[in-house]
Each structure stands twice: as C-alpha cells, then as structure tokens.
Design a protein around this nucleic acid. Structure first.
Lengths: 229, 229, 229, 229
DNA sequence: TATGAATGAGTTTTCATTCAT
DNA sequence: TATGAATGAAAACTCATTCAT
C-alpha cells in the first residue's frame, strides 16, 4: 500500500539536535500513518519500517506506543494553539462569529488533530503513567491558560479564568464534532443513504456553527448575569 | 467429541416474551458492568457469568460483543429520548436555559449513556456490519427527527429541519463533555493536583452551561439572520 | 445456497418403518450435503434444517455426528458391494481389465463414496466408540469376505482368503486415488497451471488403470509362486 | 499495555544459517510429536514448549500451523525421494519385485512420512494459500519428474512420462495403505478381535505386495499394448 | 545507538451435544 | 417423539515490548 520509505541512511543520531530531529520524524510518520489506519491497526513495526528504523529503535525515543502517540497529540495541539495565538493576536476585539471562524480555520490547518484527540480519552489516557498524565495535563493547562487570557482580552465580558473554562468547552465540542464527522468506513457507507444523509456532519461547517453559538450564548449569559446581579 | 458437560441449566426462554425479557436482562447486565470496567476489560465470560448464563447463550441473542453493546447504546439512547420527550411535552415554549436543564436532567437519569456513547465512535462503529450501522443510524434519525420537531415547536426561531440539526450538535457536545468529565483513574489522579483541578469537568454543570450557550447562540444567530435577510 | 427443504410435515415417526425411513432420509441428506461441504463445515444444524427437523431430533437417530457419518459410509459401501455383487455375478470368469472396469464402474455409480471413505480414517475412526468400530469392521469383513469369495471364483489363481486380502488392497487404492483425485479448491486451482496439470488425477481413469495393474500383477505373482513353489 | 514478561530467552538466530537450523529444529520436533499425537491434538504451544521456544517464535518461521506441517511433509518427502534416488542409482535395470522392495525400504526409513501424507489431503491442503499449494505441487512435480525418468531408465517398457504417472499411483497406494495400516487406537483394539484380525494391514508387507503387483501389472499392460498396437 | 529475534499474555466465538418442555 | 434454548470446552495467532548482539 504505502511504499516503505526506507531511507536506509539510518545514521546514528549522536548529537542532541539529531536526536530531536529523529524524534520529530517519528512523530510525523505516526501522524501521517494514523490518518490512514486506526490506532490498533497501526503497528509499531509498520511505523518503524516506514521511517527506515528498526522496531527497537522507536523505544529509544518513546517508552511505549501510547506515549508516542500522546507526544503526537501534544505536538499537534501545540501547533493548533500556536496558530490560534497568531490569529488572535491580529485582533483587538472579536465577535463570536469571527472567533469561531479563526478557531475553525486554525483547526483545519491541523487536519490530523481531531483524530488524535479522539484517541486521547479512549486509548491514550487509559494506558499512560500518572507522570505522563500530569505532564500532558500541565501542558494543556499552560496552553489553555495563555490562550484563555487572550480570549478574555478579546471578549470583555469574560472575567478572569472564564477564558480557560470556555476553552475546555471548545475542546469538548471539537472532540464531539470531530468524532461525529469522522465516521468509520462502514458507517460512512450507511450515511450515504438518502434517508440518512442529514446525519453526516461536515467538520468545519458544524464546528464553526457550534462554536459561534457557544461564544454568542456564553457572552449573552454573562451579560444577562452582569445586568441582573 | 466435544462433550457438553452440562452443569446447571437456566430456565429456557421459549416464548417470544421470555426471549425479549432475557435479551433485556443481558443488556441491563452489560450496562451495569460497563460502568465498572472498560469495554476491552469487560469479557463476555464475565457478563455471562453475571447473568447466570453460559457464554454461548449470549450469542443466541447477539451475534457479537459489539452488536450487544450497540444494542445497549440504542436502548439507553431510547430511554434518554423518551425522557426528553416527556419533559418537553410539558412545555408550551421554553427558553434556552430551561431547555438545557431539561436535557441535562434527562441525561443525568441515564448515567451510563455517556460512557456508552463514547464507545460508539471509537469501538462499536468500527466493528459492525453495514446492516447494523444502517439500522442504528436509522433509529437515530427517527429519534432525532421526532425530537427535532418538538424543538421546533418550542423554539419558534427554528425552521423545519433545524431542530434535528441542533440535536446533532447536542449529541456532539454530550459526547465531548461526557468524555472530558469521565477521565481514566490515572488521569483522574493527575487532575486532583491543585494546579490541574481547573481542568476537571463536572458533567451536569458543564453540559448545562454548554447546551444553554449553544441554544442561546443558535437562536441569536437565527434571529440575526431573520432580521437582516 | 441450498434452499431449506423444510418439509414442515415433521410427522412423528411412530412405526418402525417410519423410523427407518427417517433415518434413511437423514443419511441421504448427509451424503448430499457432504458433497458440497467438508465434514467440519457441515454442521448438524444445517443438516437438520435441510431435512426439516430440529437439531435434537438427529440425536434420536444417531448418538453423534461421527456415528451418523459412519452410518453413511456404511450405507454407501453397502451399495457399492451390492453393485459389485450384481456385476460379478454375470461373469463366469473375468480378466483383470474387465474386473477393474466393473469395480470402477460400480464406484462411479456411488460418486459420494470416495469422499466418505476419506473421512473414515482421518475423522470418523478417531472419534467413535469401540463398539461402533467393531460393528463397522465386522460389516466390512462380511462384505469383503463375501465378495472375496466371488473373486476367488472368478480368478482361479486366487487361493482361499486371498480374495479378501486383494479387496483390502483395492480399498487402499480407492482411498488413495480417491483423495488424489478430489483436491481442495485451492489445490485444484494450483493444479490448473500448465506445468502442474499432469499431477491431476481422474478418478475413473486412474483407478481402472491401477486396479487393472494390481489384479494383473497379483495374478502374475501367484502364478510365478505357483509354478515355482 | 501488553507487558512482555520475558522469562529466559533462547539464543538468537541472527545469521541465515542459524535461522535455517532453527527452522529445521522446529520441523524435526513437529515430526517427532506428530508421531505421538494427531494433528488437532498437537498444539502449537506444546510444540514450542518442546523446543524451548515461545509460541510466537514459531510464527516467525511459519505463518501458520498448516504451513509448518506442510513444510514437514515436504521435508520428509524430500528425504524419501533422496533415498529412492540413491537406491535406484545402484541398479542398471530392475524387476518389479525389487523395485517395490526398494521403494518400501526407502519408505520404512521415513516412518513418519505416511502419517504426514495422510494429513496432506484432509487437513493441510484445505487450509493453505494458493501460493503455498503451487509451491508444494511444483516441488512434487520436480521430484516425481526426476524419479520418473529414473524409473523409465530402469523399466524399459515405460515410455517417457509414464514414470511420473506411475509415481502418482505409487503415491496413492502409499497413502491408501498408509492409512489402512495406521488405525486409531480404538479401531486398533477392534481389529485385535480374532474375527477381525485379517483386516489388519502391515505397511511394509502390504505395500510391497501392492507395489510389486502394480509394477508387474503396469509393465504387462504396456507389453500387451506394445505387442498389439 | 541500532538492530530484529524472541517473548507470551490474552479472549472471542463456534458448534456438537444435552435436556427441559 | 420432537423441539430448540442452553451449554461450555477449546486453541491459534498477534503484536507491543525486551534484550542479546
């Protein structure tokens, strides 16, 4: 199917940079292959082969398959938050629709993130060490905190801390719509039937609508609260 | 050759009613045990044993483990929609907060539904026949269609068909927040740390907030649209 | 595939004759289905369904699947020996070629016998009671004894007892060529290749050649022995 | 997730030779154990354990149980043909009895071959890939072709191609008599009864007689044909 | 560092047979 | 007799991970 890239260079990664680069290669390959195959179907052997490494070598960079994919999730989330940061910094204030659009556009640039996020709850978080869990969640808290503050800057109605909370809900919505819009092949075929087509969800469209509504509603609720304390 | 060393036989379900009842017993047990153990840890043997049946008997009622749990999801969803129907029918009109509250309350009455829903995308829909997928999605379409119309009655701003679409988003939100609020034990422990506590999500609270915002925002968007066509 | 005959008459077989007839129906169905499906793929449920009986009913007639098929083998062997008897009785003496032809022709009239015989050694005789084994072998001894005597009548060179012994070898040859000429679908496909076609064996042709050679050689050996005692 | 609790590791077969040797060890063990236990009773676990390997390791050498035993059949057949080749090369010409004796003696040196051959038709050839089937049959064609030519040299009456054909029949006879002379324990007990003893077949004796007759008859038929064309 | 041979835990599903009805 | 619901034993194979080289 996918031809083994087999770089056959397989030089030893001696320097720190070389190691970091190889680690990144692994994550990229994992991300790429994961777009084609489900987690359980994507074997470490295939991944190693794709990169031109031996199976054992992967374990010099990641202690487990779960840990490897957790790193991939993290990397992809990182990129998303970076993209969001860049986009938001260009606004002085922003209305719900525009914010939803920015987040959605930033997500579309990371087309593999949603699949990876779906792994998070159902697979990865079931099979990692507490240490990894803490590290990942701390990373998430950091990113959300930072971007939350940015949101609070853009949406005056948001009080301190509510930006991050809003982001938690954004996450949930991304996960939910992400899963609904990425059905398995079998389900996909079922949803092609005329009478079931309206159950299909297009990720960008629906996500933008949902986020927009969420932001609008959130703001409205806060204003209502604010007006009638 | 294969000797069946009968131990103690359960009463035979010969009538149609008895069969339906036994099927229901199986689903109830599956639901109950699934609240304790993850899907992959919940073996058919344990399930059978719990009910006092032999493993093979389960397969007289469901062709596979996946199919069994799909039926459990369906039953639980059915109950949720029934509860929603009952609750909504008592309103002539409804505001976003109240609607969010009703849906949330109805969900809280089905505490196992969210976990089952999380299975849907990641496990069940990967391993079922197209026929089962069609049946399940048709069931979903029916329920959503009916309840969608009810929503359109309660929220005048909703045009025909938008009730069901809104429900698709409700589903996504339920799935997303459901997963976020039901972390694995390891993650749970991580989230107990002071600096990570704010990542915890309480299902009823957050769901109600999110749905309320969603409805409010949806209505607002529609009105905005309606006012400036 | 094969449409369930579903006689739905399913009258109770009260008289002895009715029982015998039903037993025969079962054997006929077993033989017929066994021509389509290998032993392990031919389930008792399918067999029962084909006849329009319930699974359990089969066990009122045969104590086990193996026993059922052993009876089928026996019935088919019986028919073969009957056919042979009829054919041989029409000769006063016979030459090797003609004898081989008669046996082969008699076998061709029982096209399912060879498959059943292949079951005998590898499956049935591994899983029957000693009692059944004795009964079957005694039956075989009876048939072979009788026909052996007939052979001794037709081939003067044969001394008493050698007819039966010759038949044992005939059996072996029938089994061996029977298996070789009835390859599995996969092997069949392999044997269609030009360079492998010469490994194909046509049962009637090869059997006749082999038996003819066997008889001719047997007679020659005896004569050689007889001439130089 | 899946923790590999290494116990004691066998020496790793890294070189090509070491791998070939290990493969051979596996085949030898399989052959040896198969003399004691029927195919279905001989579990891969037992086999692995016997060699001091883990189950999984077997699958590094053979893709399936069937494929493993097919290789065993092939190896054993190979040895038989080698033995035959050696024996026949010592003759300038040969009479039927002597030929039968050589083949029988060569077979007796491979006491496990007949059992393995019985597997071929009933089990192995039902469960292999077409590719494996082709490879095996091609191997067989090669061996038979070579030995067939040898036969044609030794038996002048044989025309080109008839040596191989004769070998096909030899195969069939070996299979048939092999099965008849290797009854299951139960049948064996039945055949110990005085009135059934004459159904017992002694492999070397009966095979030699049958082959001798076959060759003699074959030659006679050819001569008859040759004399009266 | 890299390799890849070796490890071994882990579980659904089938189907001949039984027996309550 | 007939039914068919219930029984439960049974085993090959995968693949993440390890570790000798």
């Amino acid at each position: 199917m996918t031809v083994a890239t087999q770089k056959r260079s397989t030089k030893r990664a001696r320097s720190v940079e070389a190691r970091a680069e190889r680690r990144d290669d692994i994550l990229s390959a994992a991300e790429r292959l994961f777009a084609e195959q489900r987690f359980s179907e994507l074997h470490m052997a295939r991944l190693a082969n794709e990169i031109g490494l031996a199976k054992g070598t992967l374990y010099l960079y990641f202690p487990s398959k779960e840990s490897l994919f957790l790193a991939a999730v993290q990397r992809s989330l990182d990129a998303w938050y970076a993209a969001i940061g860049g986009r938001l910094s260009r606004h002085a204030f922003i209305d719900p629709d525009a914010l939803a659009r920015e987040l959605t556009d930033a997500l579309v640039e990371q087309p593999r993130l949603t699949r990876l996020l779906a792994l998070l709850h159902t697979v990865l978080e079931q099979n990692i060490t507490e240490q990894d869990a803490v590290a990942f969640k701390a990373f998430l808290a950091r990113k959300m905190g930072r971007t939350g503050i940015e949101l609070e800057r853009l949406i005056p109605a948001l009080e301190p801390g509510q930006g991050a909370r809003l982001l938690l809900q954004v996450h949930a919505v991304v996960v939910g719509i992400g899963q609904a819009s990425d059905p398995s092949p079998v389900v996909n075929r079922a949803l092609e039937r005329p009478d079931l087509q309206h159950l299909q969800m297009d990720l960008p469209t629906e996500l933008c609508v949902a986020l927009s509504a969420l932001f609008r509603g959130f703001a409205a609720a806060l204003e209502a609260q604010g007006n009638t304390p």
